[in-house]
Design a protein around this nucleic acid. Structure first.
Lengths: 336, 336
DNA sequence: TCACTGGTTTACAACGTTGGAACCATCGTT
DNA sequence: AACGATGGTTCCAACGTTGTAAACCAGTGA
């Protein structure tokens, strides 16, 4: 029912292929013809049929973005930026939520959507290392992870160094009993593992002992988990005077638990998070955090994917580091 | 390169069409043949080519969801639920961000993605009434709005009643100078308009006068807007002792501004929001709010769309009301 | 044995697009 | 004057799938 190349061609008095050439910006078309075709296109309101185009050319113009969950403000923000970056290349982004389930992640990597997408941007949570091999032949860019010897490009900040900086910030403020919230017992999430390593390194650097009673594990990364972990820390023998939470949402949950327990922040316990989500800039107290350069991450990820889509035979996987900043706010410094 | 029906057919020793019949669950296929074909499918790892299927059948199995912005926790949550609901019908959801720009919204409704999607779930912000007419012939379901005489189905809570309830809650607590945050000067966003109407109705109901100095307009619906609006209210002659913010994010911004100004919440000023986002359950103080039945909204929206996609000739547009609850928390009731 | 029935399978023609070869002017060279 | 080069355009054949209609193959009743 909607007009196709055929209809445009008929109206402009040229062949179908010539219209196709105009649409695709092929160079050798006379200005006169081009004008006539353009006019016919406008008049009919022609829109290319993506299905047919994909069938013929193999390219769909759609890339998939797979994140653990959109509810998480950090991923929501990141997704928005990636969509914008992709738009500049006139790609459409299909957002997939894995809920951190290994099964779903495996499906993705196995290329279940094979025909439908040209490329995949993937922020793995459950899968690591070996399992991330081979996404069929769909180019893939990994996000926020540091997978050694993986076959795919990836973009990440130096999680270990950033975690060390955050922990170091607490130590520099004179805190001696610094807790960590966000470890995971099967260290499946690589990111959590790296942040824990950074935490430990910073403790050593500051000459502070490491106390198992100060490390709280979580099942997932929501406010409730942060609050529960904080309560466990308070009930335990650790007597923390500072907390490094592995992301902002955990930190906000922890702060809530601290205030519920009658502790002041940062008076009794200083808190720092990770991600720099919008909430932290308006919470009470405002949240100190580590701010990855999210816009840069989004830009780079799309750029890397574009390169893979361009050169058929591409080189070895690349690992790109992105900058981050330490952003101290009230939850460690107190009110101005 | 990936196997097609052709390859499966060759391996199973049947015709292409028979394989197609098996794949599509056509009834009249002998068990023996079916088994042989199934086996070939598994062996080759055959996956149907969606592009070809769409080209032939006109259906893509993709629906689009257009929301103002994903960063907003409410929409992020809603999007997640809709994706889940769509998955049960094995639809893929393409999420579109309009940023509330009329231009983008118009493009969507005009059906720019026409060929690519089977249906559209749309939460309009800039567009209203007349402009929402005719999305080409792509079925559309509207979200969260009440557009009279619109040609499309829509699902929404009774915004006016809910806003009145929220305002009434403040009045019932004895507050006399109740401010509203979230009005918009060109009342483009229908939702904002309705919530303002509810606010007014509740004031009248409670026998309270309406004071223009107590109504704060915003440009958009982020924390910063809420904080700025609150500061204007505090600097103005209104002397509010309560605030009804048109969504939770505005409310959280307002609370932050109140605390910055040295006012206590709810002691000096009680605050209630709208949406029941996760943040409000862990903020300090926890946020009183109106909780729409989001899961039900998601379910209904997908169901309505499914019906439109089923019967070719469907009836008149339907308007579905969804339940909501008033959820009082610390920001109006104080600490337990 | 023959036509008939009804389940099972197949051949063929699309769907709208694009890559490549082929074609036809026109122009500048030898 | 004949020739190649070049720009502009067209023709043809796919891409992988499904709807339609027709062919095939028992088994059945006459």
């Amino acid at each position: 029912m909607p007009p196709g190349l055929k209809d445009v061609a008929a109206r402009a008095g040229v062949s179908i292929k010539t219209v196709s050439n105009v649409v695709n910006g092929y160079v050798h078309v006379s200005p006169a013809t081009r004008a006539r075709v353009q006019q016919a296109i406008e008049a009919l309101g022609y829109i290319p049929n993506v299905a047919a185009r994909q069938l013929r050319s193999g390219r769909s113009g759609v890339i998939a973005l797979a994140v653990p969950e959109l509810q998480s403000p950090y991923f929501a923000e990141l997704a928005g930026l990636i969509v914008q970056a992709a738009e500049r290349r006139s790609w459409t982004v299909l957002i997939d939520q894995t809920d951190g389930q290994a099964e779903r992640e495996r499906n993705l990597v196995a290329g279940l959507r094979r025909h439908a997408i040209d490329g995949l941007i993937f922020s793995p949570l459950a899968l690591a290392g070996e399992e991330l091999t081979s996404s069929g032949d769909t180019p893939m860019v990994l996000l926020g992870e540091r997978v050694w010897h993986g076959p795919a490009d990836h973009v990440a900040i130096d999680n270990t160094a950033a975690a060390a900086d955050a922990t170091g910030h607490l130590a520099a403020l004179g805190r001696r009993r610094i807790a960590a919230i966000g470890a995971q017992s099967p260290p499946s999430a690589v990111t959590a593992h790296q942040r824990l390593a950074g935490y430990r390194a910073a403790l050593a650097e500051a000459g502070l002992p490491e106390d198992p009673a100060l490390i709280a594990e979580v099942d997932s990364f929501h406010r409730a988990d942060g609050a529960a972990a904080m309560r466990r820390l308070l009930d335990g023998p650790g007597r923390p005077d500072a907390v490094f939470a592995f992301n902002d949402v955990l930190a906000l949950g922890a702060i809530r638990a601290l205030l519920d327990a009658g502790r002041s922040v940062p008076g009794d316990v200083a808190v720092i998070g990770f991600d720099d989500i919008e909430d932290g800039r308006f919470s009470t107290p405002t949240l100190s955090t580590v701010a990855p350069d999210t816009a840069e991450i989004a830009r780079l990820v799309v750029e890397l994917l574009a390169e893979r889509l361009g050169e058929e035979k591409a080189g070895p996987p690349r690992e790109v580091r992105v900058a981050y900043r330490l952003v101290p706010r009230e939850s460690t410094l107190g009110r101005a």
